[in-house]
Simulated assay, not measured.
Amino acid sequence: MSIEDHRFLHLLEEGMVKRQDLHYEMPLPLKTDNVSLPSNRQVAEKRWRQLTARFKKNPQFLNDYRAFMDEVIKTCAERAPVHSVEGMVNYVPHTGVYHPRKPGKIRVVFDCSAKCNGISLNDHLLQGPDLTNELLGVLCRFR
């Protein structure tokens, strides 16, 4: 494992807590402590306008989306602080998609790779260790 992989695991070991509602809360695995992100509010507002246009075209999409987001807000969202620190605020655009084999079941996708001035939130996050098996190892164990 790389140094960044070890740092990622250390951050999660130190910062992960089990909440009273039995969910786990983990810190963002930031590459550095002094992250400075450009204000991406315009990108998020543009995506929101596209989403509201889609809501107007498809009322069922709006109802499914609202139900999903109400559940997210109720179970795992936190209220953002009123006073924000410049460079530490990042709006995460989102949209809803339906799976072709699961009609009527929406999945909301949060886009942390949305770029603003060539920078996204994902650019500042540690990737974490690769936990997939290597093909050579799988082939050697195959019988």
Rank of each mutant, 00 (worst) to 15 (best):
Val82His: 06
Gln50Tyr: 07
Val35Glu: 07
Glu86Pro: 15
Ser36Tyr: 11
Trp48Glu: 09
Gln50Ser: 14
Val35Ser: 05
Pro59Cys: 04
Glu45Arg: 14
Cys76Gln: 12
Val35Cys: 04
Val82Met: 11
Ser36Ile: 11
Lys46Asp: 10
Glu86Tyr: 02
Val72Gly: 03
Arg41Pro: 00
Arg66Met: 12
Cys76Glu: 13
Asn63Gly: 02
Val35Ile: 13
Val85Tyr: 00
Phe61Leu: 08
Pro38Leu: 00
Leu51Lys: 08
Ala44Ser: 02
Ala44Gly: 01
Asn63Ser: 14
His83Tyr: 10
Arg41Gly: 09
His83Cys: 04
Ala80Gly: 07
Phe61Ser: 04
Lys46Gly: 10
Ala67Ser: 13
Tyr65Leu: 08
Asp33Val: 04
Asn40His: 03
Glu78Val: 14
Val72Trp: 07
Lys56Leu: 13
Asp33Leu: 08
Val72Leu: 11
Leu51Ala: 09
Gln50Glu: 14
Lys74Pro: 08
Ala44Thr: 02
Tyr65Thr: 05
Val82Ala: 14
Val43Ser: 11
Asp64Ser: 09
Ser39Ala: 12
Pro38Val: 02
Ala77Thr: 06
Phe68Pro: 01
Thr52Val: 06
Val35His: 07
Val72Pro: 02
Arg41Val: 09
Ala80Cys: 12
Tyr65Glu: 05
Cys76Pro: 00
Glu86Asp: 15
Phe61Met: 03
Leu62Ile: 03
Glu71His: 14
Lys56Gly: 03
Asp64Thr: 03
Asn58Thr: 04
Gln60Ser: 09
Gln42Tyr: 08
Phe61Val: 00
Ala53Lys: 11
Lys46Val: 08
Val43Tyr: 05
Ser84Lys: 14
Asp64Gln: 10
Pro59Thr: 07
Arg66Pro: 01
Lys57Tyr: 06
Ser39Pro: 09
Leu62Asp: 06
Ala77Val: 04
Leu37Val: 10
Trp48Asp: 05
Lys74Asp: 12
Arg54Met: 01
Thr75Phe: 12
Phe55Val: 00
Arg47Trp: 01
Phe68Gly: 01
Gln50Trp: 02
Val72Ser: 11
Arg79Cys: 09
Ala44Pro: 00
Phe55Arg: 00
Lys57Thr: 10
Lys74Val: 04
Ser39Glu: 12
Val85Thr: 10
Pro38Ser: 01
Leu37Arg: 02
Val82Thr: 14
Leu62Tyr: 15
Val85Asp: 09
Arg41Cys: 08
Tyr65Ile: 02
Pro59Asp: 02
